[in-house]
Amino acid sequence: MSASRERILSRLRASRPAQPLPVPDLDQHYQPRLRDESLAERVARFRTGIESFHAEVHFSTEADWPALLARLCADKGVASLLYGADTPAGSRLDPAGFSTTALRPWAGRVEDFKRELFHQVDAGFTQTLGAIAETGTLILWPSAAEPRTLSLVPPIHFALLDARRIHQTFFHAIRDGGWASGLPTNALLVSGPSKTADIQQTLAYGAHGPKELVVIVTNAEGDGQ
């Protein structure tokens, strides 16, 4: 194994240019295309984008979003909602507010309840780190409190987004968020429910991941409440 490592690296070293090429200038591309836009315009771009990918977008406030989530769960017939209880958003969920939906805080390791996760959970709820206006994309940084499969295995994914954290582009999200100095185990961009066009270029939703993506946006007015 290490013989191959040495062989490959020495072959590459022997033929690589004496000097690396100049460092690419990303600003030259992104800077002139930066938009001077209001929060409302940015939210609108995000919404148009993600709706075009078949996601549902709802607006609410810091105070009211748990009630909206409960109502959406009831409307969609969600019997069990999985979420991370040890997050700022998760701690706001109160079983009393959910009439027909059983709240299920994630507990333990995935191995301990894989079968239920795959077969008995109707929906998962997560926070988001932010979003990207250009494409209509959510940014998720799963964590110990909010595991990766929450946004993957259940058929419906509810995501909470603070409108003030919508970036213009993926590039700006990376740069402004200082991502290069520390990424989680798994960082994700999500643009709509899972889909495929592998059969005769016909678009079908609900391939292997969620069949529905529902986004609840708060602070879209910029008042922070």
Partner: peptide, 10 residues
């Protein structure tokens, strides 16, 4: 414009 998922594994 973008794929549904972009998965960054570290």
């Amino acid at each position: 414009a973008i794929s549904t998922y972009f998965n960054m594994i570290s």
